[in-house]
Amino acid sequence: LDPCYDDTGAARRCIPEFINAAFGKEVMVSSVCGRPPSRSCSVVERGDDRPSVRTCQICDAADPRRAHPASYLTDLNSAHNLTCWQSENLNTSPYNVTLTLSLGKKFEITYVSLQFCSPRPESLAIYKSMDYGKTWMPYQFYSSQCRRMYNRPNKATITKQNEQEALCTDGHTDLYPLSGGLIAFSTLDGRPSGKDFDNSPVLQDWVTVTDIRVVFNRPQLPRELGLGAGGSNSDDPASVTSTLATYFYAVGDFQVGGRCKCNGHASRCLKDKEGKLVCDCKHNTEGPECDRCKPFHYDRPWQRANAREANECLPCNCNLHARRCRFNMELYKLSGRKSGGVCMNCRHNTAGRHCHYCKEGFYRDMARPITHRRACKACDCHPVGAAGKTCNQTTGQCPCKDGVTGITCNRCAKGYQQSRSPVAPCIKIP
């Protein structure tokens, strides 16, 4: 049972399963604690109106029990055994730390989420790339000071005119919880065309990513911590570092939820011979994202599948006389958007956009179907008796000189006899 075809064998839209595309993938981080071993302290809530306490840990990259490597970002997220990546201590400004995740293929993503082991950053930015990290564009910003940090308004309104615009919000930037806080960015939430995604190339483009980059720009600052004796009005976290807590970013789970992008023409993605993830394309499509028609399937332009139409690529009709064809938009429009394929290099002495008639110098053998390789026979016009080499493509009749007859013009007509002149091979009998 192939999800790309129904019971009758007709093509229908198919999509790969929804996954956490980040799971098990390597994340490049600009900072990781433990080289050399370092001590980091954090404030832990205890609940029940009991005061928060300060706890300190050693991070040692060489000791697996005390290491917090980047691989912990995308490993199995278990509440019983929470593993966290942790940055170096942030002693001086700037406090930028970057996480870069390469998906290795285009995905259509629905959300990006981060579960923190430290307090959530005060400012962070999410960027996306659609070209494997060559260029980056903003995807979403979080900050309690959107204008100051990112020069964007807080919670701007999204309309149909700016659906591909990154927003900034001050949500999710609260200090509390001190650990376990979540930042979740939903790519379609609040975007007007999200309800009509099939018909919105803009949003289809918006959710397409090959790489995700998260930049933590600033941790919660001391004055926002409000921790009494250890707090300070300074903008510099270092002022409380020595007395209460060190500042670092720590994340237990980094998820990117979405589907391998196959444009509705594959139900799964597989690894190719080189280990690259590619769509298992159906509907006569090919390419990493099933983003083009297979050779010889150019009778109509490639299109993404949707709920109503599979839009499969259709083969050109060349009557078995050509192996290649091309698409012609003008012919396609003239046909009422039905057929635009033009056969190339028609063989077996055929011609025409569908190799559906005989080329000059040949005529159709009506005893055979047009698909037969000998459907076209040579005219075989007589070199002297015929006035040319091209015969009637239907009957095979060559154009005869005066007084000459026969399909190939090889005999003198009744009342004529052969002369010695090749120019007038038959002359009237006196």
Partner: peptide, 24 residues
């Protein structure tokens, strides 16, 4: 009545060498 096919050997090619088929 079926007329005989044209006999290439009967033609005089003297003034029409360029028209003469190769195998004549």
């Amino acid at each position: 009545e079926v007329m005989p096919t044209l006999d290439m050997a009967l033609f005089d090619w003297t003034d029409y060498e360029d028209m003469k088929p190769v195998d004549t």
